[in-house]
Nucleic acid binder design. Structure first.
Length: 291
DNA sequence: TAGCCGTGGTG
DNA sequence: TCACCAAGGCT
């Protein structure tokens, strides 16, 4: 048994961070907003935006009543702005179809836009105290090391990864939810990707990686995502122009941010397709739903 | 399943 | 400096 739930849960009680979406008064809606914002995004950047959102839109119906452009502006520079539109759409569905209450059932959550295998189970566990295998990048790394003795997780396989974690979950709902939060926190604070703090780890005694002599990662190389000069980068430049102005802009204002016309136009087209940009009747460009 | 989708901090 | 990394989802 490489992971003692008692030891891990005790460690979490003492060392876990006091984050606003973990406080007792936080609503399931607050938890859901945090989970979407935290996708591929560090806690430090999420926290101030989360505070603003919860104060401004304390319930799903409140967010649903806002315009898309407003929501995209409030999203600011968190990144992956399609998340903001999906959360907006999810809020609308929750308000209309679920009585303005965030669902607690994994399958119901999975049906909402922007909510996948991780987020659905994270909400079930952290907002409702349900027993569910919550598998994110931190959990995959901790399990790879502590259970499998590998330096890092291999390529993700949702079915296998969830089965791995399911086997580790303690029996009760509340304890399983606590355990899941603790496992993630251990990966975030101690069992980190670059330089793990094994000296501070509560699980070293049973850790398979430790016993194997901490071998380096031996799996296939992970694909590296370039950014500078990519379409993702250019889309970011275009959106930043629209976020920074309240009035629709002429295309010439967008053309100056990137010299390669072909790539620039392709990116603008894709933003229109994604619903992140709209064209006004007179041919100018703006964030959606504002004109 | 691999590739795409933003952004900023860091070792 | 610059590649890597950060609570994924969708197609």
């Amino acid at each position: 048994m490489p992971i003692s739930s008692d030891v891990l849960i005790d460690w979490f009680a003492e060392q876990g961070r006091d984050l606003p979406w973990r406080r007792p008064g936080c609503t399931p809606w607050g938890v859901l907003v945090s989970e979407i914002m935290l996708q591929q995004t560090p806690v430090a950047r999420v926290q101030p935006i989360w505070e603003e959102w919860l104060a401004r839109w304390p319930r799903p119906s409140a967010l649903a009543a806002a315009g898309q452009g407003e929501v995209l502006r409030a999203w600011g520079r968190l990144g992956y702005p399609r998340r903001a539109l999906r959360l907006h759409a999810a809020a609308d569905a929750i308000a209309r179809e679920h009585g303005d209450e965030v669902p607690s059932d994994v399958d119901t959550l999975l049906a909402l836009p922007g909510i996948g295998a991780y987020t659905a189970r994270a909400v079930a566990a952290f907002a409702y105290g349900r027993r569910a295998p919550v598998v994110d990048t931190n959990v995959r790394r901790v399990v790879a090391r502590a259970v499998h003795g590998a330096g890092d997780a291999g390529p993700p396989s949702n079915t296998r990864d969830m089965a791995d974690v399911e086997a580790l979950l303690p029996a009760g709902d509340a304890r399983a939810a606590r355990f899941s939060a603790a496992l993630m926190e251990l990966g975030a604070l101690v069992c980190t990707a670059r330089s793990p703090r094994c000296a501070d780890c509560p699980l070293t005694e049973g850790c398979a990686w430790q016993h194997a002599g901490r071998p380096a990662y031996a799996g296939p190389a992970k694909p590296v995502q370039r950014y500078a000069g990519t379409d993702r980068y250019v889309r970011g430049l275009l959106l930043e122009v629209l976020r920074s102005t309240s009035e629709p802009v002429e295309k010439s204002r967008l053309d100056i941010v990137w010299s390669q016309a072909g790539q620039r136009d392709r990116c603008l087209d894709s933003l229109l397709v994604d619903g992140l940009v709209e064209q006004t009747a007179d041919g100018r460009f703006a964030l959606p739903g504002e004109h």
